[in-house]
Write a protein that binds this DNA or RNA. Sequence first.
DNA 1: ATGAGGATTTCCT
DNA 2: GGAAATCCTCATA
Length: 211
Amino acid sequence: MVGVTEFLSNTTTPKIAALLLGKQLRLATPTGILTAWITETEAYLGATDAGAHAFKNHQTARNQALWQPAGTIYIYQMRTQFLLNLVTQSAGVPECVLIRGIEPVEGVAQMQRNRPVPLANLTTGPGKLMQALGLDKTLNGTLLSSTTLDLRLTPARNPQQIATSPRIGIVNKGDWSTAPLRYYVAGNPFVSQVKKRDQDLAQHGWQATII
DNA sequence: ATGAGGATTTCCT
DNA sequence: GGAAATCCTCATA
């Protein structure tokens, strides 16, 4: 039985970003449990990564959580949106994975009350999924499992195929703008900017067996 | 389909 | 004052 902290810290951050696909986010709310499979992630590689908030180890009031241990939640606000990241290495190593897409499992009706749009547009982006979960930055700096938000390693799904691409929105950052640090479940409809013709409506890009 | 502009917090020049 | 790990609306085609 591998714990979440161990899972998040015993390999490189890009590998963790890929391994997170198919794992389950679980949020306990006063009116019910919300769960979803992770479908899309991005790796942010700390002090050396020109696209990361921790580039050159620059600490600010906003990004303190990145220097906390693996399993720490890093949430920050960009304009009107909140973005969810999970810290992936031991304390002092400011690397993280951004959660960019999730496939709702339990509590879909509650998610749609939080964010009243069609299911196809509910969680297909990092800001959208936070609206659907009803989260702001209250959980920033706390540990997974210590409050209401949890990462579950089982049950889980296996992607049939993992696709990669450059990270979204990282511009004018040289090689870091083109590095293939975005990972998503090929064919899954709950991925940002995915085209209709690329969607696998039957299996959503998952293998049939739930682990 | 694609693109411009605005909402609004945090950080940097 | 400007840009940013985003999303929505409105315009044009």
